[in-house]
Design a protein around this nucleic acid. Structure first.
Length: 130
DNA sequence: CGTTTGACTACGC
DNA sequence: CGCGTAGCCAAAC
């Protein structure tokens, strides 16, 4: 990868764990997931804020675990971030539509309607977050 | 050694 | 809503 978080393994693992919490038919943004992962003591909070969303994308790009519903993670504009027109992007859209997610005429998902509210406090506590 | 490039965002018009 | 811009940073060219 071109750049990586201070502790790639921990970061990637958390991205996968969090993504697996997203319910079918709902979506989350890269930034939304990044915001759930706090820097460890001594790590640069600023770097997490600036680069977190990128790291989430990198983590999902490198994910080979089929249990992870990577298709439910899209960008802050409600659009698919994979290269437009690519087979990968088409696959993501097809998977989401199969879950009931509707795309607008501008190939966008209405985040107001489909955005995941985030993990509940119980899950966060059980995973040492917040 | 300068430029391009990524599964990102926020912001301006 | 569509586009451009800036911030970002290390690897690949």
């Amino acid at each position: 990868m071109m750049w990586s978080p201070p502790q790639p393994v921990r970061y990637f693992w958390l991205v996968y764990e969090i993504t697996m919490q997203i319910p079918m038919g709902q979506v989350a943004t890269y930034g939304q997931i990044a915001a759930l992962i706090p820097p460890l003591p001594g790590e640069d909070p600023d770097a997490y804020r600036r680069l977190g969303p990128r790291w989430v994308g990198t983590a999902l790009r490198n994910c080979h675990d089929k249990r992870v519903p990577w298709q439910r993670v899209i960008n802050s504009q409600g659009k698919i971030s994979l290269p437009a027109g690519s087979t990968a992007a088409e696959t993501q859209r097809r998977l989401l539509e199969a879950e009931g997610v509707v795309f607008t005429a501008s190939d966008r998902v209405d985040l107001k309607h489909y955005r995941w509210a985030g993990p509940d406090a119980e899950w966060l506590a059980a995973n040492g977050l917040q």
